[in-house]
Design a binder for these strands. Structure first.
Ligand code: SF4
Ligand code: SF4
Lengths: 135, 135
DNA sequence: CATATATCCGACTAAAATTATCGTATATCT
DNA sequence: AGATATACGATAATTTTAGTCGGATATATG
């Protein structure tokens, strides 16, 4: 229960790898996926999502790859989760747009509010944890 | 991501229902599942698990059912999770018996320890949240 | 300009976890 | 004895997550 997505781990490993590659121009998905034993296609998708969300920058073509936009201590765990299109959602009803919830109990449920508070605390935890602390 | 098991919600609803039934002898699964719209068989199993873990007591036979062993303010969310055989486990490696982990990265992984600390905080949160606060 | 390399992106498939159901046994009240 | 209700393991259905595939676009280099 309360499992973190594998993709988040992969993203963190990738950031760590690029960061430790230091001054090199950029690092390709192939190199990362080979070194860290991460499925190539899956990691590629993860990288693309992180580009879209401004965490890394991509370089197409020969000798291309990815560069970190920020130091790991300026990237937050919550950012990674968001970039991957994921979100912390403990129940079906805790969505940004509450009209979307398909839970039949929605209107009368007593759990929503207190669970929401717990979720908020976890979100806060994620938003304050830097990638530096994780890698 | 980080979804709470539906069974936990069902368990909480059941406890709430029994609690609000007040001074009655005991409350059957059928009555709870009908009132709260919870699948009967599933709730039955949940109740059995809670019996085994001392949260409720069962009464077999005609007019049987379940009774709360404690007031909701003396039952903790973490207890419910544990009773249902669930546990907060953010990664594959964060198991009680670490030799069981089947993650190939286990030995060298840098994420385990920091993620474990986050998990500890969430566990603490669960262990300090009473059912009273939730229902 | 041609070619090799590497990112981009949506759709698809496979695997795992969760949720729900079934069948049968056991206990208890009337 | 008969009706009612819990006990419990096994199985099925559903949902979510993880991983794969195919084809497109961009760029360095010769
Ligand atoms: S409304 Fe209540 S039952 Fe429905 S998803 Fe939210 S917490 Fe769960
Ligand atoms: S060892 Fe690392 S990669 Fe493996 S499950 Fe734990 S955190 Fe994830």
């Amino acid at each position: 229960m309360l499992k973190i997505a594998k993709s988040v781990e992969y993203a963190l490993f990738a950031i760590k790898y690029i960061h430790e590659s230091g001054n090199r121009e950029c690092v390709s998905v192939k190199e990362i996926s080979d070194s860290m034993n991460i499925p190539y296609e899956l990691l590629a998708k993860i990288m693309q999502r992180m580009v879209k969300n401004g965490i890394i920058t991509s370089q197409h073509g020969t000798n291309g790859g990815y560069i970190l936009n920020n130091k790991p201590d300026a990237i937050f765990l919550g950012q990674i989760v968001g970039a991957l299109g994921l979100k912390i959602q403990m129940t079906d009803c805790l969505v940004h747009d509450p009209t979307v919830s398909d839970c039949a109990r929605f209107k009368t449920c007593c759990l929503r509010s207190p669970i929401s508070k717990i979720q908020d605390k976890i979100n806060l935890l994620f938003d304050h944890t830097t990638v530096q602390e994780l890698i």
